[in-house]
């Protein structure tokens, strides 16, 4: 009888031990799952936030860049691009690596800037390209900044369009 009780107690103890182990494993699994979910979610949100901040930064720095006398219309106070000056800057930046890296520093990011005229004539050309062509980019952001465009070859000489900024983020 005593032997039987001892066997029963031993089995009970073993069952309790197994239960404890199962509970601990279960808790660890739950912790790992919750931790993974929170980590992935927080990483995604941090990336989204960084992307938004970067886009705002890119927009401001591009706007500052577009306001340099080398691009700006002579007559106009607001954001206005002289198409001829843009073409000149484009050809210089194509040939001169230092000039291109100076623009890259001004904009603060690898980007392509395309001047698109919507009125009076529809035309477009890529006038700045600060990408190296060697880097893999994880993200591309596109933003279109409305601008007044002065172009004496068109009639009338002042029209409008936008600067398409294609920002490449690593």
């Amino acid at each position: 009888m005593q032997k039987c009780r001892a066997v029963l107690q031993s089995t009970k103890g073993q069952t309790r031990g197994v239960e404890t182990i199962i509970a601990v494993v279960f808790v660890i699994i739950i912790i790992v799952i919750l931790g993974s979910i929170i980590f992935m979610e927080s990483s995604k949100r941090a990336l989204d936030k960084a992307k938004d901040n970067q886009l705002t930064y890119v927009m401001n720095s591009v706007e500052n860049f577009l306001n340099v006398p080398e691009l700006k219309c002579s007559y106009f106070g607001k954001l206005c691009i002289d198409a001829w000056k843009a073409k000149a800057v484009s050809s210089i930046s194509e040939e001169d690596v230092e000039f291109r890296s100076y623009i890259r520093r001004m904009i603060g990011i690898d980007a392509e800037l395309k001047l698109v005229s919507l009125y009076p004539e529809e035309e477009s050309f890529l006038f700045i390209n600060t990408t190296s062509g060697l880097t893999d980019y994880s993200l591309t952001q596109v933003i279109r900044l409305p601008v007044v465009i002065e172009n004496d070859t068109n009639e009338p000489g002042i029209g409008f369009g936008y600067v398409e900024v294609r920002a490449y983020l690593r």
Binding site: F76, L79, P146, V147, V148, F160
Partner: peptide, 19 residues
């Protein structure tokens, strides 16, 4: 910030009497 910039630049174009 982005939308306000885009909208104000667009309004500049519409209100510009030199175009």
């Amino acid at each position: 910030l982005i939308e306000s910039k885009l909208a104000s630049l667009t309004a500049n174009i519409i209100s510009d009497s030199s175009i």
